[in-house]
Design a protein around this nucleic acid. Structure first.
Lengths: 205, 205
DNA sequence: TAGAAATGTGAGCAATTATTCGCATCATGA
DNA sequence: TCATGATGCGAATAATTGCTCACATTTCTA
């Protein structure tokens, strides 16, 4: 009955080129299965088969399937954070609408690469014992956005950042789920939402 | 390898009072497990145990665990839709801010009852073959909101409704996940977002 | 080129979970 | 009250999936 806290970190770091390729194949196969067949099809045997390697090889590098997901999640996170850092860099010297545009672009770009995968991994994250890491990521992302809005004199930048992130997240999520592909138009609507929210705040004081 | 499309609908409708109670116990146990122990603990045997009935009884009414989740999801949906219908009724004759307030209240109320459960069920929905039903629900919800915003002369009511629903969804989700409990303040922020979005639209034309 | 170290293999065992079935108990109506 | 159908039970079994291990192959290095 005890859960025994299974390890999530890779078992062994690949040293040679071919083992690196094996790991990549496993990760890619896992991603493909998650994004197009769903979690019930996500079994170690199936992942290995699709990757063209044996289960034994899989277990040489990953202690279990959760560990594979953990790597994918971390990859996604790093990309997302990088996108946002770049957006913040670009937004220096811009006015508020310009800054909003840069941030919104980052939020969309993150889902642009592999929309279905991004969505699944976010759901998967909830079942993974990565709470501390997840918290850190959210915190950094929030700080980035807080910095930008604070620079433009927005009141209560902390709350505003939280809300802006959440509303953009919701809108992008819905758009992807609904199969929208016109990302330029989506960006425009996100900007409208962001600027609208910020304006409404100004009006009140 | 074939998935064989398992049935999702209840097997037998309970006729006597005690069987009704059995079903309720099963559904409640399932809900409790999902909201506090997570999906990995959601097994038929465990559900039956917590419900205080035998597995046999469980399988008498549900062809599998997905069927239990399906019932819970449908229940949640009905409640949500009812909340929104009521909100629309209340919003008749109100001005735009008043209408926004009513809709926002409905969006929050839906998560107020059992926040953790609502969140889990939404995730669970994605793995269930209920796409048609899900689509219908979203459509009806959208129509309700379209009606309200159109009444107030909002341009492109269709797109606006979609965006408003999505942004509120995202914000409520984030708030619940973050453990927020001050729902009044959350409502205020949602209203700000909604009205801000609608205003930003007006400004453009 | 020989030995060592790394990597790859997949049948098969272990563990978990889903599901059934024969039988006991309870409710109903004639 | 008895008979019949509904409901409940849970050990036993089926099915799935996780995971290991003894051995084969490849690469490295000295």
């Amino acid at each position: 009955m005890s859960v025994a806290a299974k390890p999530l970190n890779p078992r062994k770091t690949p040293l040679q080129g071919r083992s690196r390729a094996t790991c990549d194949a496993i990760l890619e196969a896992a991603a493909r299965i998650l994004e197009s067949e769903g979690r019930q099809a996500f079994t170690t045997n199936h992942v290995a088969e699709l990757a063209g390697v044996s289960v034994g090889s899989l277990y040489q590098y990953f202690p279990g399937k959760e560990a594979i997901v953990a790597v994918l999640v971390r990859q996604m996170r790093r990309e997302m954070l990088d996108d946002f850092k770049e957006a913040v860099r670009q937004s220096r010297g811009e006015d508020l609408p310009g800054a909003a545009r840069a941030l919104v672009r980052a939020a969309v770009r993150h889902h642009l690469r592999r929309p279905a995968l991004a969505q699944v991994l976010e759901r998967e994250e909830a079942d993974l014992p990565l709470d501390a890491e997840t918290g850190q990521l959210k915190q950094r992302l929030r700080e980035l956005v807080v910095g930008v809005v604070a620079d433009h004199g927005v009141a209560e930048p902390d709350v505003a950042a939280l809300d802006l992130i959440a509303m953009c997240h919701g809108m992008v999520d819905a758009a992807v789920q609904g199969g929208e592909r016109d990302f330029a138009q989506l960006c425009a609507r996100l900007e409208r939402a962001v600027l609208g929210y910020l304006n409404a705040g100004d009006i009140r004081r």
